[in-house]
Every structure is written in structure tokens, then in C-alpha cells.
């Protein structure tokens, strides 16, 4: 491979506002890009720099800062190198440009993100179809303000007699019963 990732980023820095560059591992580079430039930047990586494979696309919910961080994991087959492109979007105005025209399978990821986090990707095919949840009528379940415990309690009813133990204490009881008895 002619270019190493560092030089690619340096070259692209002339045109894009890249921040928080971090070399996580030898084959993984993290960086952040503003929302407006993100799709153009990803297209540049795909078409110009041989990062032809979208390994996955996901989101991290930073409820404290009020942002969602979208992550696009791109892979370069020739160099065996990954670049994770982070894009911050507002938690309330959850809308992002769709990349289904770059990779067809991105539409499925976007469907999932729409369902699980309520992020909208205008123009993405079958975006509003049910993916995993059928007939969901609450706020999207993977958002961190969603209280899954109380939802489960009121919807699925805990069975009587269910007990929860701390794994550490429980294993102590099982593995060293004599020791704890003597104490």
C-alpha cells in the first residue's frame, strides 16, 4: 500500500476539519468529523483512499452531553486497516444524511438505528418499516432515558420467587463455604 493512514489523514486535513485523531491500535484509527462534511469525507475515503468496506455503523448515546455519536467503521482490504469515523449529532434534532447510496447494506443499519434510537435518515429505503420491534409504541428502547426495568416489570411481569445474587458473594459461598463459616 502506497499511503499509510497517517499521511492519508494529513492529506485530507487540508480539506476537512478533522479532530480528535487517535491511533487506537495498529490497525484502527479513530477520528471525528463535523456532521456537514461527514458523508463527503466518507465518500472520499471510499473512492479515493480504498476504504471500500463499511464494516458496521452504530451509535453511542452520550446522554450527559446531549449528543449521539454515530460511528462508521470503514475497512481497507488491501492495507488491513480500519478507520472509525465519529460524527456528533444533536440528541434532540436526530437527523443525519443517509449513506445508502455509498453502500446498499447501510440502509439496514439505518433502519435499525431509526428503530432503536429514533435517528432519522431521510431518503433511506424502507426506513420506517419494522425491523426488530413490531408495533413499538414507546420511545425508542435503546435511548438511555428509556427505563427498561420498569417497562419490563409492567409489561412482562416478574415471576414470583425470582432472586438475584451478587456473583462475587455467591461464588465465595460456593467455593469457600468452610472459610466463611469459620469467620
Amino acid at each position: 500500500m502506497s499511503n499509510d493512514p497517517k499521511s492519508i489523514i494529513e492529506e485530507l486535513s487540508d480539506h476537512y476539519q478533522i479532530s480528535e485523531i487517535k491511533e487506537q491500535k495498529a490497525d484502527l484509527l479513530l477520528l471525528k468529523i463535523p456532521k456537514e462534511d461527514a458523508v463527503q469525507f466518507i465518500r472520499e475515503l471510499r473512492d479515493g483512499q480504498n476504504y471500500t468496506h463499511l464494516a458496521f455503523m452504530t451509535v453511542i448515546d452520550y446522554i450527559e452531553s446531549g449528543i449521539f455519536t454515530l460511528t462508521y467503521m470503514l475497512h481497507n482490504y488491501a492495507a488491513h486497516h480500519n478507520i472509525a469515523v465519529h460524527v456528533d449529532i444533536d440528541r434532540e434534532q436526530t437527523e443525519m444524511e443517509s449513506i445508502h447510496e455509498l453502500w446498499v447494506h447501510a440502509a439496514t443499519y439505518q433502519r435499525e438505528l431509526r428503530e432503536m434510537y429514533g435517528i432519522r435518515f431521510p431518503g433511506s429505503p424502507r426506513l420506517d418499516d419494522d425491523f426488530c420491534l413490531e408495533g413499538w409504541d414507546e420511545i425508542p428502547p435503546m435511548r438511555r432515558e428509556f427505563d427498561t426495568v420498569s417497562y419490563s416489570r409492567e409489561r412482562f411481569f416478574d415471576r414470583e420467587g425470582r432472586i438475584t445474587t451478587d456473583p462475587r458473594e455467591h461464588m465465595k459461598q460456593i467455593m469457600y463455604p468452610i472459610h466463611t463459616d469459620n469467620d
Partner: peptide, 10 residues
């Protein structure tokens, strides 16, 4: 999965 949003408990 007792506290999951889509796993039935009983």
C-alpha cells in the same frame, strides 16, 4: 434478560 424491553418473562 429479565429486565429486557422485549423478552417475555413468564
Amino acid at each position: 434478560y429479565w429486565d429486557s424491553y422485549n423478552t417475555v418473562n413468564q
